[in-house]
Design a protein around this nucleic acid. Sequence first.
DNA 1: CTGTATCCCCTACGATACTG
DNA 2: CAGTATCGTAGGGGATACAG
Lengths: 127, 127
Amino acid sequence: MEKTADAPTFDPACPMSAFPVQIGDKWTAMVVLCLEARPRRFSELRQLLGSVSAKVLTDTLRAMERDGLVSRSVFDENPPRVEYRLTALGRTLLQLVDAARSWARDNLDDLLSARRQHDDMPLPSPR
Amino acid sequence: MEKTADAPTFDPACPMSAFPVQIGDKWTAMVVLCLEARPRRFSELRQLLGSVSAKVLTDTLRAMERDGLVSRSVFDENPPRVEYRLTALGRTLLQLVDAARSWARDNLDDLLSARRQHDDMPLPSPR
DNA sequence: CTGTATCCCCTACGATACTG
DNA sequence: CAGTATCGTAGGGGATACAG
């Protein structure tokens, strides 16, 4: 590696390096979407997400809380009620997650059909 | 779940569901960045990424190829030379990945300091 | 209702060694 | 140079059972 004009392509100290671990897991991005309109209860989130186990949703929410993305409010009622809401920092993710959703809407079909085509003929030519 | 006004928050059939598996892994997003300026050789990508093993980079590139995000060109030379480049579909990810990078630049400090603060006093108050 | 506590599986990731 | 082959580990994700 001797010259310039190449360099700026990728900065190894780029904050991106830390990014995927934040919303790259299975549920974080969708939790953000679920909390966009208003705070949600634990059980409400479970329903909206559809197939997540209590443990994993708890893990996800705890991690998001730790990172300052959501806040947790406990109401001392009976039965107990807990609400999760996006923090200001969490809200900053909305644009990004929405961009991801748009990308998926626009391009996922192409990606999946490329994948199907690739899987149909995996052999380049056996000779 | 009986009513409206809530509904549009989250569509369970949303293509987002399939999204994280694509760029949510550790290296895909950064490979996209590395290929932004021009095609790159295998070894070049390894250097740019810094710490990835040959196996994992191969796995990543094969998966991206399968999904139509990158194309692979073999030049019949000696020593062998292989170049990877973004496809048109792969290029559509650039905006998104760049948005992710921008988010990280703008907000990662906040996230990390929230995390530090959370980790310092994990006890809400033992009373 | 809102979680915790276990157990288990699978896969992403990585280190190392080797090949065309 | 550009991979493949193998092996090993950690932890994300899920099912189930139980608790405050």
